[in-house]
Design a protein around this nucleic acid. Sequence first.
DNA 1: CTGTTAGCGCTTTCAT
DNA 2: ATGAAAGCGCTAACAG
Lengths: 349, 349
Amino acid sequence: MTVTLSDVASRAGVSPATVSRVLNGNYPVAEGTRERVLRAVDELDYVLNGPASSLAAATSDLVGVLVNDIADPFFGIIASAVQSQIGGPGGRAGGERLAVVCGTGGAPERELTYLTLLQRQRAAAVVLTGGAVEDPGHRAAVAAKLRKLGAAGTRVILLGRPPLPDAGPGVTALTFDNRAGARELTAHLLALGHRRIGCVAGPPERTTTRHRLEGHRAALAEAGIEDLAGATAHGAYDRASGYRAVGELLDRVPDLTAIVAANDTVALGACAALRERGLRVPEDVSVTGFDDLPFSADALPALTTVRLPLQGTGARAGRIATGRDAPPAGGEELVAGELVVRGSTGPVK
Amino acid sequence: MTVTLSDVASRAGVSPATVSRVLNGNYPVAEGTRERVLRAVDELDYVLNGPASSLAAATSDLVGVLVNDIADPFFGIIASAVQSQIGGPGGRAGGERLAVVCGTGGAPERELTYLTLLQRQRAAAVVLTGGAVEDPGHRAAVAAKLRKLGAAGTRVILLGRPPLPDAGPGVTALTFDNRAGARELTAHLLALGHRRIGCVAGPPERTTTRHRLEGHRAALAEAGIEDLAGATAHGAYDRASGYRAVGELLDRVPDLTAIVAANDTVALGACAALRERGLRVPEDVSVTGFDDLPFSADALPALTTVRLPLQGTGARAGRIATGRDAPPAGGEELVAGELVVRGSTGPVK
DNA sequence: CTGTTAGCGCTTTCAT
DNA sequence: ATGAAAGCGCTAACAG
């Protein structure tokens, strides 16, 4: 049979209630009693029953982290940072919270399903990462779900995704300044003399895509340059998409001198495609990424990109999730990226 | 207040038990009743209480995945694959299970702590990934823990880590053939004429490190070549370690013509260090990796490495974890890697 | 096929 | 500071 709280209690010669208090540590217990209980726990090799605690306390030690894809370092770094902060003291007995990482593959309905699953688990907090899908119906559904989660005591944090006012107050949003980053990147290319710039954007329906595209166009507009017709291609946030898009773009606008890619991964695919077509980077075509993932510095040429403080922001989210950090005033914080110029961009030929 | 099973029951005009049966789907219920219940669930916007179910059923739908570091693509890919198979949205067969990803940072005590936490949650399964630490005490402690987990009905799967006989039967081990992979890599270098080969190995206390090193030396021995004194340096499985180790190695053995690195990440660090010293890869020094992570193909030169079927093995582990796949006979399976020759290796000068 | 009846193991007022 | 007792919401025999 499994050892229960009462077993520990009788062994220690106290009541179950006292054992519970010792284990949860959030209630005064005489030092002597405490030690006796702890010893009994040890001797019996007792392990608290999580589900039972959660049922009685109406909350669990689980923190949900929704990501598009765990295998993508962008999300891996964030998830890792969140997790690094949700352990430690401050939790229930044992003091550690567990991260439930859910890969949605970017599918709206999975996002909703996972949110329900997390609601079912009475998660202590939920962190939604990555750009949101801009569909009014889905948006409303997510907002409704988040409202319920919030009402049930679950902390909700949006990371790298815009605020959702109708999800209720108490929802924290840590967003990246994608617009400003993209603007800087394009401005950098313009300063190098580029005028014929192609754009390999992400999936059209995502906020991240829209914002980066807006930043790009803003820079163009500021310089009084018209965006080339047919110079934008959309695709997934992956390498294959970058590879394919370069083909499309070059077919439509053969004399491009630069390409801004949706992110680093896409940029690498683009570079590979360019090389295969006999075009050198950056001598013939400059290429930019976004995010500054670790491999970007090792690519040859190393990518010019915008560094996003993924680790720091993830850690912040983790601390807010556990109540260790207060949410930003107004429930919203815009996190800036930083232009990192490396070898993949150069003066126009 | 929150909606409970009985609320749904009375609304549908049935007993709570019937509602439970409908929701769990593993018991015959008349179609008409079923529909009425489902409608009531919908109307009341009912969400099952996970902790309560888990308490009553003495098992949860949580699957723990222990990894060194979620941010490392090696583990991210595995975690992603495991998760894709344990149900949840997209997965079929009533199995909506959640992956609890735990980053241990490679620390033995964190491994134990997480195992206890998962035991507390009555996890349905636990997947331990990555090489094991070769400390007798820790090894015994993990075995004891796993025995308890197994006894409590938790399925235990070791992925990329050697079997642990004293963890009891019923523990499945899917191990990578690190030895054979490393042997092939070194044999490949030998065939290219290299004789002065340096080795940037991983942390000395891990099984992965030892096996890869053994494979390397086996190849050397087979060719009747003596391992150079001072030609092996140990370090973490990260880029910085590869970078640093090249310095050490070259100081001790300046005329190396090839370097076998602990893995791809380390290899990239090594390449960077080599380049900075004015040495070309592969003209002056050949370099090999291990794992074949996605970025390895994009590095320039692309890495010669051993491809490990991370995705496939992770998926396999996920299916075994949920009981969808039967464990291999004998509880053990050796997964082979595949030599992938690319640009980072070439004939000796 | 469906209802009844007991708990599952813990937390938490409320007393003392 | 500690104990007693009343659930938390669900599942699983066991009947019918």
